[in-house]
Write a protein that binds this DNA or RNA. Structure first.
Lengths: 212, 212
DNA sequence: ACATTTTTTATTGTTACAATAATCAAATGG
DNA sequence: CCATTTGATTATTGTAACAATAAAAAATGT
């Protein structure tokens, strides 16, 4: 029973195969991994981060064997604008996603801001009279002309041929009154009398702005 | 003779003790944990993040909630398109004519507010610390994480595990500083030191809100 | 009554494991 | 002989399991 080779068995490809098998560093991160205990609520956050990290690593490795010239680098416009790179390394750089108790929802600004497209228009805020209502010069006010204005609403009104955005209020005599939202005293309430031309064009249901 | 303890062997405290044992949620994060496999190079980074998170959780459990950040909101897969008229409120029409005469241009809030969809998300403003920058509680801040933060920008940052929206400034020593926009004195600047965990998540490029 | 010991249960870092994926060698088939 | 298939082998990876520790209350001792 020294040699069984000649014994015609359905020959399997037996024996060990040195050098075979999956190669080191062929995982998702191109580096070894370890396990870490994390709070369950943070798991999705961390997974998101790790995905971004993995993507970055893989992108870098594929770029590595391309030859050619490197990036051009310009001097920063302002030297030492801010030295935050040091801190960034302390924590996950470029954390893209929502974190901790912050629930993730999806939001479309257009849907959020506009109820009825056909009756809505925008107006650019000019003065500072509604500053304390959070309307700064340059802000775009969302005006819906189909909505009925109630006391307390911010409205776009025309008074004697002039457009204005103010808070609608009522006088004792029942006539309307337009209140600024600015306690500096620079703006005074507009008291509407019977002789004045007055029309409410719409209700300001929202606003938006760009900072940068 | 009711006492027979004298010639007994050293007694053990036997028997079961219902209700005993460590209480749930008494761990580092005050919540259950799980394990996650991570690349070894990122382990210290993640541990740092988790430490900050744990610190925040423990702090929150004791003290009440000061101003912070509300939910994160992502953009929908597909943003809606709109084309709505924009008027200038300064146009002083001498006539109570329909405002349609003063059309300036057509505007889509989504296009106006968002530069790069894939790097943008929304955050709900919580406190009044940025009141004077026109950010009221409940407002949605538009955050673009692909933009580079510069001094003077309003940024979404994380400081020791806590999110905050503040104006980015610089200390004399070059370290960053986060300034509130509220002169009431209720909010103080956040001075970043080397020991603090600090990261800028993105630049607030805009905001929007609903009034009604 | 108070301090100490014992028992119980949760936490937590690490190891183990099983399923999967990647890779090469041998076998197979033209 | 070369391309393809099959099988063996090894790394990866998510999860389960474990042991040591920590925390909390009951039981006991003084």
């Amino acid at each position: 029973m020294e040699n069984e080779r000649d014994n015609q068995a359905p020959k399997k490809a037996g024996g060990r195969r040195p050098g075979s098998g999956r190669k080191l560093g062929t995982g998702n991160y191109l580096e070894p991994t370890t396990v870490l205990r994390v709070p369950v609520s943070q798991k999705p956050v961390l997974i998101d981060f790790l995905e971004a990290y993995a993507k970055k690593q893989r992108a870098q490795s594929s770029r590595a064997n391309l030859d050619g010239i490197g990036d051009f680098e310009l001097l920063p416009k302002e030297l030492s604008k801010l030295d935050i790179s040091l801190y960034q390394s302390k924590v996950a750089a470029g954390f893209p996603s929502p974190a901790d108790d912050h629930v993730e929802k999806r939001l479309d600004p257009n849907e959020y801001l506009i109820d009825q497209e056909e009756s809505t228009f925008f107006v650019t805020i000019q003065g500072e009279s509604m500053l304390e209502a959070g309307l700064l010069p340059g802000d775009k006010a969302v005006v819906d002309k189909s909505k009925t204005a109630e006391v307390g609403d911010i409205v776009l009104a025309m008074v004697d041929g002039e457009f204005t955005i103010k808070t609608l209020a009522k006088q004792k005599d029942g006539n309307p009154k337009l209140l600024p939202a600015n306690s500096s005293g620079k703006y005074t309430p507009i008291i509407i009398t019977g002789e004045m031309q007055f029309e409410i064009f719409g209700v300001v249901i929202g606003s938006f702005r760009r900072f940068k």
